[in-house]
Design a protein around this nucleic acid. Sequence first.
RNA 1: GCGCCUGUAGCUCAGUGGAUAGAGCAUCGGUCUUCGGAACCGAGGGUCGGGGGUUCGAAUCCCUCCGGGCGCGCCA
Length: 584
Amino acid sequence: MHGVNQMRILEQAVKEKATAALSAAGASGDLENLLGPATVEELGDLAVPCHSLAPLLKRSPVDIAESISSSLAPVLSGIAEVSAVSGFVNIKAEPKWLAARLCEILPDDRLGVSIEETRVAAVDYSSPNVAKEMHVGHLRSTVIGDAIVRMLMHKGHTVHRENHVGDWGTPFGMLIEHLLDLGEGNAADELGVGDLDGFYKQARAKFNSDEIFVERSRNRVVMLQSGDEETLRLWRVLVDESMRYFNEVYGMLGVLLTNEDIMGESNYHHLLPDVVTRLENLGILEDSDGAKVVYPGGWVNREGEPMPLIIQKADGGYNYATTDLACIIDRVERIGCNDLLYVVGAPQTQHFKMVFEVASKAGLMDNSHNATHINFGSVLDSDGKILKSREGEAIKLVDLLNESVVRAEQAIADRNPSIDPKQRREIAKAIGIGAVKYADLSTERTKDYVFDWDRMLSFDGNTSPYLQYAHARICSIFRRSLIARPLPDGTAITLLHPEEILLARRLVNFSAMVDESLHTYSPHRLCTYLHSVASAFASFYENCPVLSSEDDLVRLSRLALCDLTARTLSTGLGLLGIDSPEQM
RNA sequence: GCGCCUGUAGCUCAGUGGAUAGAGCAUCGGUCUUCGGAACCGAGGGUCGGGGGUUCGAAUCCCUCCGGGCGCGCCA
């Protein structure tokens, strides 16, 4: 299967010898690049297309492939079979070699995943707004960001989770005044039960219709900005009540974010004048209609005029570009980040390009820093429109998560009525939440995806319930087997049946696929891989009896395959932030 | 108008310049007195939006047109 059979470990094992065989055949140039994953798995794991060599060697690709193949075959004996087909040299790992790799991974808690040279990364994700509801728009950022955080941590990196909460700015004048109108106690109650939308909308409605309220709001913003103690206290009430609510949602979702990770906009407030000063000192700050701006170049507005990044508004206020630059300063200079990752929706692509451009221009970061906007598409309904509630409003994230758990619980009750209700509830959480997260993670993140309850909660197909089910089945096998995990050191693995060999091919790739998924910030690649593992396991399980096998060695070998499969699935799902229950 | 993203099987989606473009779902057919049937095996189904170009080779890179989405100055 294309994409899930990278076989990097085989590539490492044969690279030197393959390159040598190529130069022996008379080829020159960057021969390493010729060796790559095969696209037809039946033919091989790796392949060398010889077509580009033909004009150089003045021989046909078929000819070249055959001669390279015959010289390489004996050298790779014991590692891989070598063959030549229509100008390709195909290299296919031998079952014995695969078995030896699995034996190495078997006692390894990390399943072959290496620790990389430590980098310091800041991952900016989730970022809800205080006194506003979390909706599906926050789902993607939170779920994708959390998966990337988990992968980075697993690879040994130092990760700063940064929840860039919207807790500052002009709306807070309005929100605080509304808080006072309601009375603090009532307002806190309303926010506390999670009715953030109601609170915000009431404030907004007054702001749109009541001029006195508008005036009060403006005054309140000034007081907030100038550090008035009572105003700050009221602001703090809004922030605290909102965060309490957000933390509940994070708890439901099972993401790593805590209060420790909150780095709201207010945290950077004191740095904003410094941003202006720095840009001014560099002489890149220009005046435009009273606003202070930087022209990164390359962007034009509707009138075709150069488009600036506004650093300070004409009224002296700052906006989000300024805060983002302050963030970069903070992350580079205080935290010492190498990676600055922003898990934010695709519509902000241009904004981030401009900010990164200005930051580089201003020397706030240099080539040693990797600033990446990890963008993502929208969640759509079955009509291809942005997912909304029946009333045409954004769907509350809590409602969506609750519904998923309810649906999962119903599905379990239908199929496994004997299960204890309390346990059923726990499993339903793992399945329901996992299904929503997996649906979000399993498609290429820059594209929009269609939200579909029936599909994501299905126990078939590329879904988390299918992967969780495969895992639970294996746990069941071990429960019956009375054999304890981990399996004893030195457990022998023998691969005879095609289904065993295919499963082994998948399992040895775990480490490469984790790396691939992380380096491209593409959790869906890990999902695709895990599904291919579960699918290969299903075939194996059907065709290769484990417990009923008469031969003790075969039984143990197959149990080892079961064990590796279960650990690959649970570790992989774990990196995606999804639980793997032992029963379901 | 300018810019970015996007278009692959009936549906939902993979696909790194390589071989006959792949999964899952759905459909149809088959297997098995079930190590958890929530199973497995097989089949049909494609002008990779259209058209040019580069290349030994293009879903992939370039140009152009069409469809869809998003963004484009003091909101975040």
